[in-house]
Design a protein around this nucleic acid. Structure first.
Length: 815
DNA sequence: ATCCTGATTTTTTTT
DNA sequence: AAATCAGGAT
């Protein structure tokens, strides 16, 4: 090692790079070629190790920037990784692939899609689009929609894809009538996707694996190109991702029993070994994505895959106090199996953990907010140092309302997404349809939005006609009459198509019909090898995406229709669209050399959830426990510590307790100095009151780690400013918890969600447009809309927000 | 084709 | 509590 350093022109940098590391970290960073497994406990500096390793590989000339593929699970993690590497190198990382699995696959497929019978403009369907398509497929097959929801069907298909089973392979394994039916739906779903030149999220992985298995030349090219592959959060990889990595680095093992090929399956590639320069980092105790088919065995069996792998354990935690670590260790000890790790910290015992019981979800929220206010005022804690975590997104509501009321600024990570709003999805669907005329889902979405007099029936006829004749929705729309569409709708369709053709011209796209191969006709085998240079732009660059969007919104009449509504809600939608255009302009400005900007833009929009767009400094952060993985905060609240909420009732039913416990472990270990746990005896779920018991996980925390008032049985709910709501009296957890922990068998735990009572009293006040109202949480506002079903829209003066409320039940009254 | 109303569903977690 | 869906009225 030393000799390398001395001979190296970057010797100074190198030394600096390595000095800042502890011994095992340094071992991982300086490991040379060959497989490397880094078992990194929570807070042990794994991101740091990855970033340093990348810098080390470059400084020691073991790799060029362009020869590194570093994979993360979220875009946010990717961005952070890139920034850290740039800081270490002191310059940019051009050519380095630092991105999510999905983004890397999309990029490879963009270049190679033609080999699989797709054009490079293929559309990426998000979850909602995929579900819609699954519903259509289910209808086509004649599935009873009452018995099987599209979501459930799509989940099965998704699981199959992540297991690398296509429809035929899935059918071969079908062992029940239900699975036969899923196979039928899968068949149609898969065929339609391909016909529409579209892929869902799972396809991005599956098709890339297909590509690398099928085309030796492509496989070799990417193998050579990525001399070193690094993977973060390896415990959360699924089978498709596992297989992808094996193909890229050349390694692997015989199939497991549940992966045995069946007669009729396409043979999988098992060729010569590759460079095997694969470095993975992970922690089996933090595996929390099995619902996405993550397979914890990937990390547990890494040494079977690579018997010569070097294994490094990182056990020193730099984040949390010993009290917090002890709690985390005690909790996770209740799981069976797993790789033994002893996390330790030099940060001292620190403060004990605070546990509080509250009467209901709003009392819980008031307690949390009251404590936050105290920390801000009395202890000079910064807002950015505080996070509130919860199990499900829906739980943010009580917290948000209470924070708003207390005038504490906050941000929610995840949750309702910008790109999921109807007007944004419409605009994106227009772009998708322009780029990919075969995209029937987008076609169906926008053809009558704004209203053009093309209703469900007409759209259905067009799509059925396209289906019957094996043509695209675009082509079918141009032949409305033959499709049996009524005369008025034919005219409307023609006008719509004219508009779309004009927009295609503005986008710089050629007229539809001759620019690309019809999707669905795969170019297979040898015939394809050698043609089509990846990365080469086939089309002339068109107008910038921002301009195109603006033109589109104007020419389709979309903006006009919204303006005509003259409601504040429509005003909000217009503002959202302006924000979208603005974002697109920023994208244009930073896009490299104008080529294929539309495709690149659509890809980014599809793959970048705004959970990872910016997170403002200076705000309290609210998010789900899942979203918190990889983050750390000096002060962490975990709310909703009740059985049925956390662990979630579905997980209890389906035997997912160990994963829930890992999720709790993740939550605890986010905290650096201070950890608060709260639960509510009563909580509104789906608008009905539910009674819950304290989470069984609370019993697993050694009582001496809890602070005195947590243990001593009673304390007052913290006074809540302003407007001092009734401070509830809370005889707290200890007796009940201790009683249960002590008494073997304890008391019977009612099935979660069993106890419910009806909520709300009547007094149906009818509100009228323009009336001044006051809301218990949001304050003063004005009625800006009255909708059917007793829904009113209120614009609040406090924060300018607009919210839909149930007039009958919401705490609003006339002012 | 579109609007209106009542019924049903939603809540795991995400690329 | 609020969103979505289905069926019926216009």
């Amino acid at each position: 090692m030393l000799s390398v350093m001395v001979a190296n022109p970057h010797a100074e940098h190198l030394q600096e790079l390595l000095e800042a590391l502890n011994e095992p970290q340094r071992e991982a960073v300086t490991h040379g070629e060959g497989p490397l497994l880094i078992l990194a406990g929570a807070g042990s500096g794994k991101t740091r190790v990855l970033a340093h390793r990348i810098a080390f590989l470059i400084y020691t000339d073991q790799a060029q920037a362009g020869e590194i593929l570093a994979i993360t699970f979220t875009n946010k993690a990717a961005r952070e990784m890139r920034e850290r590497v740039e800081r270490l190198l002191g310059h940019g990382t051009r050519g380095m692939w630092v991105m999510t699995f999905h983004a890397a696959c999309a990029r490879i497929l963009r270049a190679e899609a033609q080999r699989l019978g797709y054009t490079r403009q293929f559309t990426i369907y998000d979850q909602a689009d995929a579900r819609r398509l699954a519903k259509r497929s289910a209808d086509a097959v004649g599935v009873d929609p009452k018995r099987h929801t599209p979501a459930a069907l799509h989940n099965h298909i998704s699981a199959a894809k992540n297991g690398l089973l296509d429809a035929a392979a899935y059918r071969r394994r079908a062992g029940s009538q239900f699975e036969e039916m899923v196979a039928d739906v899968y068949d149609v779903y898969e065929r339609d996707l391909h016909r529409m030149n579209a892929m869902d999220f799972d396809d991005l992985l599956f098709r890339t694996v297909n590509l690398l298995e099928l085309f030796e030349e492509v496989r070799e090219r990417y193998r050579e190109s990525f001399r070193h592959v690094l993977v973060d959060e390896y415990q959360d990889t699924n089978h498709a991702q596992y297989r992808l990595l094996q193909l890229l680095v050349g390694g692997g093992r015989p199939p497991r029993r549940d992966e045995e090929p069946q007669p009729g399956d396409r043979p999988t590639y098992a060729g010569p070994l590759g460079h095997r320069n694969l470095a993975v980092v992970g922690d089996d105790a933090q595996s929390i994505y099995s619902f996405r088919q993550a397979d914890i065995r990937n990390i547990l069996d890494f040494q079977d895959d690579f018997p010569d792998a070097r294994v490094v354990k990182l056990e020193q935690n730099y984040r949390s106090t010993q009290t917090i670590l002890s709690a985390a260790n005690a909790v996770i000890a209740n799981n069976r199996g797993g790789i033994a790790k002893r996390l330790w910290s030099e940060l001292g015992q620190g403060e004990q953990i605070h546990l509080r019981a509250l009467d209901d979800d709003f009392a819980e929220a008031r307690h949390v907010v009251g404590e936050i206010q105290r920390l801000l005022d009395e202890e000079q804690v910064a807002r950015s140092e505080i996070a509130v975590l919860y199990r499900t997104n829906a739980m943010s509501r009580a917290l948000e309302e209470t924070l708003t009321r207390a005038d504490v600024d906050y941000q929610v990570i995840g949750g309702t997404k910008f790109y999921e709003r109807a007007e944004i999805k419409d605009a994106i669907a227009y772009l998708s349809l322009l780029a990919n005329p075969a995209d029937a889902v987008s076609f169906a979405r926008v053809v009558n939005s704004p209203r053009r007099g093309i209703g469900q029936t007409s759209v259905g006829r067009v799509l059925a006609f396209a289906d019957a004749h094996g043509i695209t929705a675009w082509e079918a729309a141009a032949r409305g009459e033959q499709a049996g569409v009524g005369a008025a709708a034919v005219k409307a369709l023609a006008r719509f198509m004219d508009t779309m053709r004009e927009l295609r011209a503005i986008a710089g796209l050629p007229p539809v019909g001759d620019e690309d191969r019809r999707p669905g006709e795969a170019v297979t085998g040898e015939a394809a090898t050698g043609e089509a240079q990846p990365g080469e732009a086939a089309l002339a660059p068109g107008a910038p995406v921002g301009d195109l969007l603006e033109a589109l919104l104007a020419q389709t009449g979309y903006v006009e229709a919204l303006e005509a509504e003259r409601t504040i809600e429509a005003q909000g939608r217009l503002e959202n669209l302006e924000a979208l255009v603005e974002g697109a302009r920023e994208f244009d400005a930073s896009a490299p050399e104008g080529q294929d900007t539309l495709d690149a833009y659509l890809q980014q929009v599809a793959l970048v959830a705004d959970a990872d767009t910016r997170s403002d400094e200076g705000l309290i952060t609210l998010m789900t426990l899942h979203n918190a993985k990889g983050l750390e905060y000096p002060v962490v609240f975990i709310a909703g510590m009740e059985d049925g909420v956390f662990p979630h009732s579905r997980a209890i039913d389906e035997g997912g307790l160990e994963e829930e416990r890992r999720l709790f472990y993740v939550g605890i270990t986010r905290a650096m100095r201070r950890l608060y746990l709260t639960y509510a005896r009563r909580r509104a779920v789906f608008g009905a009151q539910t009674y819950g018991l304290p989470s069984r996980f609370l019993d697993e925390i050694p009582p001496d780690l809890l602070d005195a008032s947590s243990r001593e049985g009673e304390q007052r709910e913290r006074a809540f400013r302003p407007g001092a709501l009734a401070g509830g009296f809370a005889p707290a957890g200890r007796e009940r918890i201790a009683a249960r922990a002590g008494g073997a068998g304890g008391w019977q735990r009612p099935h979660a969600g069993a106890a419910r009572e009806h909520a709300g009293e009547a007094a149906a006040a009818s509100f009228r447009l323009g009336e001044d109202v006051v809301h218990a949480a949001f304050g003063e506002g004005v009625v800006t809309g009255v909708e059917p079903g007793g829904v009113i829209v209120v614009r609040f003066a406090g924060d300018g927000s607009e919210r839909k409320l149930m007039a009958e039940y919401a705490p609003v009254s006339r002012r």
